[in-house]
Amino acid sequence: MNILREVASGLLKMFVGDAWLTLGVLSVVSLTGLLTGSGAVRPLLGGAILFFGCIAVLLASVAFHGRRHRDR
C-alpha cells in the first residue's frame, strides 16, 4: 500500500508540482475554451490568448519564486 501511495503521489506531483502554476494554466485553458466555444472571439484570437496566457503564467510563476528568494 505504501508503494501505491508513493506512486500515486509521484504521479500527482508530475502535474501539480506548483499549485499556482497549475491553477494559472487551467484558468488560461478554461478562458480560451469559454471564449472560443461561445463564439465571443475568433478561434485564432483564442489561440493567441492561449499562447500568451501560458507565457504570462510562466513568467509570473518564475518572477514570484525569484522575488521570494531575493526577499529571504
Binding site: M14, F15, V16, G17, D18, L21, T22, V25, L26, V29, C54, V57, L58, S61, V62, H65, G66, H69
Partner: peptide
C-alpha cells in the same frame, strides 16, 4: 495538451529557476 502544459511548464519553470541559480 493540458497535461503536457502542466507537466512541461513545471519542468520549464524549475529549469529556469535552476539556470538562474534560484534553486
Amino acid at each position: 495538451g493540458v497535461l503536457l502544459l502542466l507537466f512541461g511548464m513545471g519542468w520549464l519553470r524549475k529549469a529556469v529557476l535552476r539556470a538562474a541559480g534560484i534553486i
